[in-house]
């Protein structure tokens, strides 16, 4: 039994730590669609503004053409389940990385590889 003392202590610590780790509310990523106040506003400031993105759980199929912002997939720990919005403050604040559409001044789309807390982005024509 003495031979197993440290190992048993280790297993106890691991199980204890696991039991006291707060669980996530959902078990998947969160989808947001771009819904600016002005429907035609694809400026850099608007696309980067998390409040212009609305939570949805339906993949709306944006087409994947990198011209205008359409849909992003946000990591769960960057999502506030109470307000159903992206986190905008603290260590888990979302930062949306954008590009300007070629030949379209003032028209921005989201970097297809996302940004901080953004797993994926699909843009549209």
């Amino acid at each position: 039994m003495k031979k197993y003392l440290f190992s048993l202590m280790a297993v106890t610590v691991a199980v204890g730590a696991f039991a006291f780790t707060p669980r996530k509310v959902h078990s998947s990523s969160m989808l947001f669609i771009y819904t600016p106040v002005d429907a035609g506003d694809y400026s850099e400031t608007s696309v980067k503004n998390p409040t212009n993105w609305t939570f949805t759980n339906v993949d709306i199929g944006c087409g994947g053409f990198n011209k205008r912002a359409c849909q992003i997939e946000v990591a769960q720990n960057y999502y506030n389940p109470i307000t159903k919005t992206m986190n905008t403050t603290g260590g888990n604040a979302v930062v949306i990385d954008v590009y300007q559409a070629a030949g379209n001044p003032g028209c921005y789309y989201v970097n297809p590889t996302g940004g901080v807390g953004v797993w994926d982005a699909t843009n549209k024509f």
Binding site: F6, S7, M9, A10, A14, V15, F18, S27
Partner: peptide, 21 residues
């Protein structure tokens, strides 16, 4: 060995608890 057990067992349980993420 005990430290490695804590690390492996804890992270394995965490991964299995939320496999989708």
């Amino acid at each position: 060995s005990a430290l490695l057990i804590v690390l492996f067992f804890y992270t394995a349980l965490s991964k299995l608890a939320d496999p989708v993420t």
